[in-house]
């Protein structure tokens, strides 16, 4: 989604238009505008359906009750002397805040993809430029999240936590 999105971005940069900064070709996906759009609008199905499954799973299994940041994490940040507990609280804050970001990426994307049928989405973001800026800003946000999230996971749970995510215990 990121690399094909930046390929589309290059056709008419959000900042500065055609004279604006273009992302270097290496590492982008699609080769040209239509190719970038093909991958972007293929990947959008996996992205949005993944979010949907995740939402259904978290609701159906009632995991939402304990999975996200809560009052106990805020309390830990203010009072706890246990460094690991404090890292864990930050970890949960990061984990919780990425979900609205991903939903925002999807919502602003739908608004740009179908602005006539979903004109209320464009209105919600203000105007076309604001919509493009929000959709674009989800890119650096997700990259920073991926780095911070990995680092916090290592700090909070060490390799045992990371292994537990990817390996059978």
């Amino acid at each position: 989604m990121l690399t094909s999105g930046l390929q589309i971005y290059n056709a008419n940069p959000v900042f500065g238009g055609r004279e604006g900064f273009h992302f270097p070709f290496v590492g982008l996906l699609g080769g040209w505008l239509a190719g970038g759009r093909h991958w972007h609008f293929a990947a959008m199905w996996f992205f949005s359906l993944n979010l949907l499954w995740y939402g259904v799973y978290v609701l159906a299994t009632q995991r939402w009750k304990h999975r996200y940041v809560g009052g106990n994490d805020i309390k830990a940040l203010q009072q706890s002397k246990n460094l690991k507990r404090r890292f864990y609280a930050w970890h949960r804050i990061a984990y919780t805040s990425i979900i609205p970001i991903l939903l925002l990426a999807l919502l602003s994307g739908i608004g740009m993809y179908k602005p006539a049928q979903f004109h209320w989405i464009v209105d919600f973001f203000g105007d076309w430029f604001a919509l493009r800026v929000v959709h674009f800003l989800t890119v650096p946000t997700v990259i920073v999240f991926a780095i911070v999230h990995s680092w916090l996971a290592l700090k909070a749970g060490g390799e045992r936590l990371v292994d537990s995510m990817f390996l059978e215990q």
Binding site: T3, G27, L28, L29, G30, G31, W32, A34, G35, G36, H38, W39, F41, A42, W45
Partner: peptide
């Protein structure tokens, strides 16, 4: 990304 770029028309044909 270079490999998948070569396959852009496949992605297009599948999902268009």
């Amino acid at each position: 990304t270079a490999g998948l770029t070569l396959a852009e028309s496949v992605a297009g044909k599948l999902f268009m």
